[in-house]
Simulated scan of single mutants.
Amino acid sequence: MHAYLETPRHLPGHHMAENAETSTSPGEHEKMDSLDEPPPPPPQEPALPYWQVNVPEAEREATCPAFLRELSAKDRGIIGTPDAAYRRATWGEVRAMAAENRLDAFRRVPSDLRRYLAYGAALRREHGSVLAFVLAHRLRWPAADVARPPRRPLFPPVSPAAADDPDVRVLRNDWPYGVDPRIVHLVVWTKFALPEDPATGDLTDDARAEVDAYVQRTFTSRVPPDRVIWFKNWRSLKSVHAIEHFHVMLYDPDPRFVDEITHGDVPLCERALE
């Protein structure tokens, strides 16, 4: 006997099912192709004018306020930067900027710069000038004392507690730069000028040595030397030209020492929030 293998017969509809799996209509091809394409990006919100950035929507002005109209390109760029995109400078970066004399690299947090400019405009309207306000309300010095200041050495005090030289005042910086919050920014104001090299506009070597001695005696007696820097702004960077001053930054100092050396001074940026 011969055994016959019966070839399986296709059941009705079986061949059609195979075709259904391997063929699609033109409309279905288009539908499948569209699934392979990335979704369209969300619509972009129109860029805000620089004076509206960091301002709540309900408070935005259609036209630029007067105190923000005549800004340098640098300040317009800062004002137009969202606070969330700003990165504060570290202590290492601050030390490098001071050591390399890159003082123009210091920046304020964008919203702080806006407040600083608005406050300065208000002071000029109310007091005539920022200088008049600083003399009368921050330093409490008669204008005559700094009109033609006599030259004298910057004698370092015997100790920080005895830093009561009537011609020198240490205050908190009213509008500090956008740096690590642990950095305390102070300003040392003097009634007398510190000699500058007319060719460079920088301090003379003798004046720099005087400031070094003052900073070492006044600040590094209570703060480690690697946590203290000082610098004097170029004339073009000064906000108050008529009164001599230089800057001191301390990294994470004892708050009691800061209160002691400044006699409990509170910067304007903190008073403005009260």
Rank of each mutant, 00 (worst) to 15 (best):
V223S: 01
R102L: 01
P224M: 09
Y86V: 10
L273C: 05
G27R: 10
P176N: 00
V134D: 01
T24V: 09
A73G: 09
V240D: 06
D112F: 09
P43R: 12
I78W: 11
V109E: 09
R76Y: 00
H127L: 09
L123E: 10
E126T: 14
Q44H: 05
A143N: 09
C64N: 02
P149L: 11
R124D: 06
A98L: 04
P181Q: 01
T22W: 10
G27H: 10
D265Q: 06
D202P: 01
G80F: 05
V179D: 07
P156G: 01
A143E: 14
V158A: 09
V223L: 03
R69Y: 12
G27K: 10
R87V: 14
E70V: 11
T204A: 05
E126A: 15
R182G: 05
A62Q: 13
W189H: 07
A20C: 11
L250G: 10
A3M: 15
S159G: 00
P181A: 02
V158Q: 08
R9E: 10
P198S: 04
H2F: 13
P198L: 04
Q52V: 13
A47R: 13
T7W: 07
Y251M: 09
K31A: 15
T218A: 05
L203M: 12
R114M: 03
A207S: 13
P82C: 01
G178E: 03
T200E: 07
V53G: 11
D164V: 04
A199V: 10
T262C: 09
T7C: 06
D197P: 02
R148C: 12
V258C: 06
V134E: 02
P38M: 11
P224Y: 08
E274D: 08
L117S: 02
T220P: 03
D265R: 00
A105Q: 14
P198E: 03
F67E: 14
H263Q: 12
V211L: 04
A121D: 14
Q52T: 12
A66Y: 15
V248R: 11
P110L: 05
Y119W: 15
E21L: 14
P39W: 11
I78F: 11
P255R: 07
P153D: 00
D164K: 12
N233L: 07
F219T: 02
F192Q: 14
P39R: 14
W141T: 10
L68W: 00
P157M: 05
P198W: 05
V55N: 03
H2S: 15
H10Q: 11
T7F: 08
A147P: 08
L186N: 08
A3I: 14
S72T: 15
S25E: 15
W91S: 05
V170S: 05
E270K: 12
R124P: 00
D226M: 04
P42Y: 02
A122P: 02
A132Y: 00
Y214C: 00
T190K: 13
S23C: 05
L139S: 04
W141Y: 06
P255C: 06
F246S: 02
G92H: 07
L103I: 03
R140L: 08
P40F: 10
R222H: 03
N54G: 02
A122C: 04
L186Y: 01
V179L: 13
P181K: 00
D174L: 09
T220A: 08
D83R: 09
E244H: 06
F219Y: 09
D167A: 14
